[in-house]
Design a protein around this nucleic acid. Structure first.
Lengths: 198, 198
DNA sequence: CAAAATTTTCATCACACTGTTGATTATTTG
DNA sequence: CAAATAATCAACAGTGTGATGAAAATTTTG
């Protein structure tokens, strides 16, 4: 949709160079310390060329996030998970894009981007929940939905931070349990009573 | 602790001017578009003065976040909620600092700062949960803890976004229910079965 | 296949922002 | 009130920014 004809070879090369340079810098320091000049020095292109593609480093990052979202969505369609996406499936899709994910989830990535990526794919994951929530007020519904999304993003961030050692199934079980049953889901076997009084 | 003797009147005035100017700008645009020059023009002080207090706008924001954390913590001690903090109490404390919170939770605030604020006070809130989690692996424990914190931050953000209309008790019930029982906590009365198969 | 048309890349320029330094002015203390 | 201390400011050199029009590469067309 955005660019069905990326004919020009130069553009492809230039964009790749910018991308590589930017990701290298972004793994070293926060985006606010990265100047356009720096990106271009590293990429060995003229600064003007950068500006003909992006307005600033933030715009560039935005575009990479979109790219990642697109990539994940495309894979989803490929795999035919159109209706219901399991957490495990989602994690595997993200893992396929480690390079970008690691940076966006890392110390110099931002949670906002991470959330955008999660949110874009969380819809499918959360479809099942709507029936549970339909009894609540509009406000409560969106609050709960946001808590779910935040929980997903949080688990994913932990996962990336730890180098994605743990198997996707393990992590997705944690997430599913928490989302479905909260802390009670982790209680050994004892029954929790809903007593709120101190 | 940080400054028990803020004797000089000028400093107080200058810092207030910087703070006001910055917050005004931050409610209009993201921090990455805010220059030191701009802050000083608005605050009618010399740029050098800014640099004698902060290194850059990010440092300034950091300092405001710390200030907010301190304020909330101080109020906590005042109220004597040293051991267990209810969600409702926490929300009320945040509401007491609307001015800052609204900006940090708003469109140009960042989730990271919000999380820092929540995290700093979530310890007390979460003390109760540690017994539930102690059976899990280190990794699972921290994952779940992060999900809890993310949920709290998420609810708070929703709350601020909607202008803090809803009473703190309402919101805290949502949060408590979700954290304790997950989505199952919102199911009308029907029993959810832990069937994971599609 | 070559010349025109199109698109991308680059050198240069004027201007804004940065961070520092040392002089100037205000505040506190004895 | 005067000396000591601390904060504020004016000015400077260096760097990054964003725009413009020329040069170069690619694609299109006859």
């Amino acid at each position: 949709m955005s660019s069905p004809k990326k004919t020009d070879r130069r553009v492809k090369y230039t964009k790749q160079a910018i991308r590589d340079s930017f990701l290298k810098l972004l793994s070293e320091k926060p985006i606010e310390k990265i100047s356009v000049t720096e990106i271009c020095r590293e990429a060995e292109i003229n600064r003007g060329t950068f500006y003909s593609h992006y307005t600033d480093p933030y715009d560039l990052r935005e575009s990479l996030v979109k790219e990642l979202i697109e990539a994940v969505r495309a894979r989803m369609l490929e795999l035919g998970v159109s209706t219901r996406l399991t957490a495990a499936q989602m994690f595997k899709l993200l893992k396929e894009n480690q390079e970008l994910c690691r940076i966006f989830a890392g110390p110099y990535g931002d949670k906002e981007s991470m959330l955008k990526i999660i949110r874009s794919n969380a819809t499918a994951y959360m479809e099942q929940e709507s029936e549970v929530l339909c009894g609540l007020s509009e406000y409560a519904q969106s609050s709960v939905r946001e808590m779910l999304i935040a929980s997903i993003a949080s688990v994913v961030k932990c996962w990336f931070d730890s180098g994605m050692q743990e198997p996707a199934e393990e992590i997705s079980r944690l997430l599913d349990t928490f989302c479905a049953y909260g802390l009670a889901g982790f209680a050994p076997r004892q029954h929790f009573h809903a007593d709120d009084s101190e």
